[in-house]
Simulated assay, not measured.
Amino acid sequence: MTSVRRKLLSVHHLSMDFPQQHSVLNVLNDISFDVYQGETLGLVGESGCGKTTLGRCLMRMYQPTRGSVLYQPDDHSEAVDLCKVNGAALRQTHRQIRMVFQDPWSSLNPRMTVFDIIAEPLKNQRPRMARSEMEDRVASMMLRVGLRPELMSRYPYAFSGGQRQRVGIARALVVEPRLVVADEAVSALDVSIRAQILNLLADLKEELNLTYIFISHDLGVVRHICDRVAVMYAGELVELADTNQLYGSPGHPYTEALISAVPRPDPRLRSAGSQRKILRGEVPDVAHRPTGCVFHPRCLYASEACRTDAPELGADHEQHLARCLRRDELTLTGV
C-alpha cells in the first residue's frame, strides 16, 4: 500500500435483518470500515459470523436494512451509495465491483460453455459488443488466469476444481472491475491448488491494479495475502488492523484465540498445549445476542462490566481498532 491511501469503499453503520415468523434476525449489527484502493482487506471469523452476508450486502445481492455503502467511482465523481442505487446505476457499479464465489462446482452453470460463462457479464454490461471482440476478450482473460483459450467451447464438467475456480475468476475480471469480493475463494480446493489460486490472485492484483475484499475462515491464508484484517464475531466487527499488527499484537481476546488455533508446520515453533486459547461454549445465536460485550460469555478475560456495557470499536494512535472494554489492560499473545 502507498503512504497516501484513497478510499474506494466506505461502509457506515451497516445492518442486515432477516424477518422470521415471529421475530427479526439481526445478522449484521452496525458494521463500519473503509477499503482503500489497491489493498487486500481480509474478513475473517467463524462460520455463522456474518462475513458472507456482509459480502453479499456489498454486492447488493441482499438489500441492507440500515446503513450505507459509499463507493467512489473511477471517474472521481461523487461517491455512490450502493444501498440506494437501482437499475442502470446498479448495473454500472456491478461492472466495477465483482465477486468470486466459494464453490467452483455449484457456481458455474453446467449447461453453459466456458465461453458463455465468462462472456455473460460482457453480454449484460456491453450488449452491443461484437461476437469477435467478445471472443478475443474471453481468450485473453483465459490466458491471464492460466487456461488455454481453445477450451472455451467445453462445459464445466470437463474441468478440475482448480480450473473451475480459474473460470470463476476470469468471469469476475472480464469486465475489468476495480474491486473484487472473494468469498472463501480457495476453501473448497486442496492445498496445492489453493496455493496456485492464491498466487494467481496476487499476480492479477498487481497486473490489473485490483482491490480485494478476501473473505475467509483460514487465518493462515489471510496472513499470507492480506494487507489489513477485519475480524467478525456474531455479526459484529470486533477488530480491524494492519495484518502484522493484528497477528503480532491482537487487541481483542477473540482474535487471540483464533490466532492460537492456527497450525504451525514447524514443530520448533509450535506452542505448548497450555498456550492454546480454548474458547468455552458456542457462537451465540444472533437472535439472542448477549447483552454488553457480545463475546463476554466465551471470553477468558471477561469482567462484570463486560456483561452489561457494550464496548465501542475504539482506536489507538496506530488505527488499531478493537471492540474490547479491557483493551488497555490486557496484553494478548500473537504470533
Results as ranks from 00 to 15, higher is better:
M1Y: 12
V4L: 11
L8M: 15
L9R: 11
S10M: 01
H12Q: 15
L14H: 09
D30V: 02
S32K: 13
D34E: 15
V35G: 07
V35K: 02
V35L: 15
Y36W: 14
Y36K: 09
L41T: 05
E46K: 01
R60E: 04
R60G: 04
P64V: 12
Q72M: 06
D74Y: 01
E78G: 13
A79H: 10
D81F: 08
G87V: 04
R91P: 00
Q92A: 15
R95C: 13
F115H: 15
A119E: 13
E120W: 01
L122E: 04
K123V: 12
R126N: 14
E133D: 12
R137L: 06
V138R: 04
V145H: 08
V145C: 11
V145P: 05
G146L: 11
M152P: 02
P156G: 02
F159C: 09
R164L: 09
A170K: 02
R171G: 01
L173R: 08
R178H: 12
D183Q: 03
E184N: 10
V191N: 05
N199E: 14
L201K: 03
L208H: 01
L210K: 06
I215T: 06
V221M: 11
C226E: 06
D227Y: 10
V229C: 03
V229F: 03
V231C: 04
E236C: 08
V238N: 11
Q245F: 09
G248V: 06
S260K: 04
P265S: 03
P265Q: 09
P267N: 13
S271R: 15
R276G: 01
K277E: 08
T291P: 00
F295M: 08
F295N: 04
P297R: 00
R298I: 07
A302E: 10
S303A: 08
S303D: 13
E304W: 00
T308P: 00
D316F: 02
T331V: 14
T333G: 00
G334W: 08
V335A: 13
